[in-house]
Computed example of a mutant assay.
Amino acid sequence: MTQKIVIELPLHCAKCKKKILAICTTADGVTTVTLEREGRDRVVIKGENIDPAKITECLREKVTKNAELVSVAMED
């Protein structure tokens, strides 16, 4: 079963995007990371056995305090 995690956070500049991608792609179990900018800035992470709280906490510490975990869903 694959997890789909959505985290909402402001994407200010290219440097922030690079940091976000680096943090998300190095987390254990992550297979894909997608940045969405439709209306609200969001990061969609897919993979198996991912700890969403740990990723959100790391983004808050290293990129922005405004990172918010929106949803965690299981997909087939």
Rank of each mutant, 00 (worst) to 15 (best):
G29M: 02
A27V: 08
I45R: 02
V6C: 00
R37A: 12
D41M: 03
A67I: 09
R42N: 00
K15D: 10
G39P: 14
C24S: 07
V33F: 00
I55A: 02
L59V: 00
V44K: 09
E57D: 13
E48Y: 02
E36H: 13
K19N: 14
R37N: 11
C16D: 10
D51P: 07
L9P: 03
L69I: 12
V43H: 03
V43Y: 02
L11E: 04
A22E: 04
I50N: 05
E36W: 10
V44E: 08
C24W: 00
K18F: 06
L69M: 11
A27R: 14
I20S: 06
D41R: 01
C58Q: 10
A22M: 10
T32E: 00
I55F: 01
K4I: 08
V6F: 00
I55T: 05
C24M: 03
A67N: 01
V44S: 13
T32L: 14
Q3D: 11
T2Y: 01
K46T: 13
C24V: 15
K18C: 13
D28Y: 03
K4Y: 10
A67K: 01
C16P: 04
A67M: 04
R42F: 01
K19D: 11
D41N: 14
A73K: 12
E8N: 08
G47N: 05
A53N: 10
V33Q: 09
A73I: 02
E61L: 11
L69N: 14
E36K: 15
R60G: 02
I50C: 07
T32S: 15
E57C: 08
E8R: 15
T2V: 02
N49L: 08
S71M: 12
A73Y: 15
T26F: 03
R40E: 14
E8V: 05
A14V: 14
V6I: 06
E38R: 15
T56S: 10
D76A: 11
K65H: 09
D51N: 15
L59Q: 01
K17P: 02
K46S: 15
S71R: 07
D28I: 09
C16G: 02
A53H: 06
K62R: 14
K54Q: 14
C16V: 08
A67Y: 00
G29R: 09
L35H: 06
E61G: 03
K54E: 09
T32I: 03
E75Q: 08
T25D: 11
T25N: 15
A73Q: 15
M74R: 10
V63R: 04
D76R: 06
D41S: 04
D76T: 05
V43R: 00
K17D: 04
C13N: 13
T31E: 01
C24T: 09
D41W: 02
P10L: 00
T25H: 14
I5R: 13
L21I: 12
Q3W: 12
H12E: 12
T26N: 15
A73M: 05
G47E: 00
R60L: 05
K15W: 11
